[in-house]
């Protein structure tokens, strides 16, 4: 499967080491439809390819949006691309978050940490676009410092709505910060949801996801209604190369979103 060339039409710097790029196909046809939580393999020509979650609106088929954190050579190259330049795209791949029909009439709790907000943003677009179909919607977002907050304007806009609870916390505040200070898991008991039926989606660093899932279970939410997004070294994207094997699963094909009850025992195993 060869990468399809896309043109970079917009780049924004969301934080010190994070950039969001908007892409449109060179060939003028629509981008492939994606489900929230899926990822693409992005190819920085001449440098390499990396899996990056899609962070745009699933209802906008003419473009792709990816938020990338600079952690290695390829992501450094991708964060440095300019408007008009080309990026290769393969995908979308993998299993995403629960489908809208699975969330209908239920309370939805979205727990995100750091760059983990990016794969969850498409879910929020869906929830807010069809708000009446769902119960209470809560977004809990934790990050390191106020400077690291992603999608700040969007968060402020969502926070201004009366039909969604948005809580943002930082591990370290600064003099100008008036919001919460503390880890994101401390926000879980501050938002209303019915643990008997709610669905929770969690994305962030592995340790944070484990703590968040534990906290959610303590509220009475069953592990089978908690979904987490796994991060592994995806390569082929279709479960052939084995780079992202995780026990009996290939994260690129069977994940990245997985049900917590199915993966919990393996997450606690040190050898995996």
């Amino acid at each position: 499967m060869r990468p399809r060339p896309f043109r970079v039409i917009r780049v924004s710097r969301d934080a010190r080491d994070v950039a969001t790029m908007t892409l449109e196909p060179f060939d003028g046809h629509a981008a492939d439809a994606f489900a929230p939580g899926q990822f693409n393999m992005l190819y920085a020509f001449g440098v390499g390819e990396v899996p990056i979650s899609i962070s745009g609106n699933p209802h906008e088929s003419d473009r792709l949006v990816h938020t990338i954190r600079r952690v290695g050579l390829v992501t450094k190259a991708l964060c440095g691309v300019q408007r008009g330049e080309a990026v290769g795209v393969r995908g979308p791949f993998g299993r995403g978050w629960p489908a809208p029909r699975e969330m209908e009439h239920r309370d939805v709790v979205v727990v995100s940490g750091g760059i983990g907000l990016a794969p969850l943003r498409p879910v929020l677009y869906e929830l807010l676009a069809n708000r009446r179909q769902y119960g209470r919607v809560s977004l809990l977002y934790g990050t390191r410092t106020p400077e690291d907050i992603l999608y700040r304007k969007e968060l402020e806009r969502w926070r201004g709505r009366f039909d969604v609870d948005v809580e943002v916390t930082v591990d370290r505040g600064d003099a100008g910060w008036r919001g919460h200070v503390g880890v994101v898991t401390t926000l879980i008991h501050r938002v209303p949801f019915d643990p008997a039926t709610a669905i929770a989606m969690v994305c962030g660093p592995a340790v944070m996801m484990r703590f968040a899932a534990t906290e959610l279970i303590q509220t009475g939410l069953e592990a089978e209604r908690i979904y987490i997004s796994m991060e592994r070294n995806m390569h082929c994207g279709i479960g052939l190369c084995g780079h992202c094997q995780y026990g009996p699963w290939f994260i690129c094909k069977d994940g990245p979103v997985m049900r917590y009850d199915q993966i919990q025992a393996r997450l606690d195993r040190r050898e995996v």
């Binding site: 080491d17 954190r69 952690v71 940490g113 750091g114 934790g142 990050t143 390191r144 690291d148 591990d171 503390g182 880890v183 898991t185 401390t186 962030g204 660093p205 340790v207 944070m208 703590f211």
Partner: peptide, 18 residues
């Protein structure tokens, strides 16, 4: 206990990839 756990998580500085 909850606050100790939260503090430990804060100390881990999990969002710092560098």
């Amino acid at each position: 206990g909850q606050r100790l756990q939260a503090t430990r998580l804060q100390l881990l500085d999990v969002y710092n990839v560098s």
